[in-house]
Design a protein around this nucleic acid. Structure first.
Lengths: 144, 144
DNA sequence: CAATTAAAAGACTTTTTTGTCTTTTAATGA
DNA sequence: TCATTAAAAGACAAAAAAGTCTTTTAATTG
């Protein structure tokens, strides 16, 4: 469904939302441990998301990654688009370049509702909401 | 959603169903042209599906790939499982090894219905049905 | 301002996926 | 039975994704 890169990105965003809710910042090592990902790999991903304005960061002592209140309202759709592009929102399920309502591939109609549901879900789900469920221990980011 | 390999596999299965409905066989070159795929690549994919009993083939003159009536009832689920495994049916959306109803990842609940819809769709859609829609020119396998 | 801390940047490697080419095996029909 | 046809098998190559490592830049604090 998502690339590994995108999975790490979503997990990291939720973790950062959680760790920075008191206004502090969280370092790359803690993030890597917290979401069980390769340290340098998630660093690269977050740097990319930083350039795109999806996550905030600060260098030096007391530095790290953080999300402000508006960042916590970031939707999964924003993250997925930034990392994987919008293939999942609009690409053809059978990989045809020419596939549309007018010129549908054999799976086009079967896919329409599924794609709509995925899009709705990604558009409405916010990082902050997922972080709150995590805080309540209703969900988990790793084994523990 | 699916790997390229799986996309080619589904397209090829529909094409073979169409071309072999009169009891004849269709060669790898015609398949590659018909679904716009690399010839040797789709050959390898179909050999694998052949070994798994998902498609039938015959060597020599008048040989080629074909589907009998029971083959035409093959579901997309069968093809997808044979090619991509069952990640799409049961894997965690965030790539966690430990993810279940009891120990859900942050996206677990959001994904449950989507996964159910995808599974239903793949289980109920048969190669033969897709081929009939193609015959009626309601859908397309390539530009034309 | 110098030492320290932590992210940014970028080169590099490994693994997986995708794609290509050549040789072998099996079936057909003259 | 021999030439031909077409898939099977398997080695190989290219591209993309995933992961690692080193150097540079920027912020903080004494």
């Amino acid at each position: 469904m998502f690339s590994k890169t995108c999975e790490y990105a979503i997990r990291a965003m939720i973790f950062i939302a959680q760790q920075s809710k008191d206004g502090s910042r969280v370092g790359i090592k803690d993030i890597a441990k917290g979401i069980d990902s390769p340290e340098h790999f998630i660093a690269k991903i977050l740097q990319d998301l930083g350039r795109k304005g999806v996550v905030q960061s600060l260098k030096g002592p007391t530095g790290g990654f953080y999300l402000d209140n508006s960042g916590r309202k970031t939707t999964l759709a924003t993250i997925v688009k930034a990392v994987d592009g919008d293939d999942i929102f609009s690409g053809c399920g059978l990989g045809l370049k020419q596939c549309s309502d007018k010129h549908p591939c054999p799976l086009h109609h079967e896919f329409i509702n599924i794609r709509k549901d995925i899009t709705n879900m990604l558009n409405k789900t916010k990082v902050g909401d997922l972080q709150e469920q995590l805080d309540k221990k209703l969900t988990f980011l790793r084994r523990d």
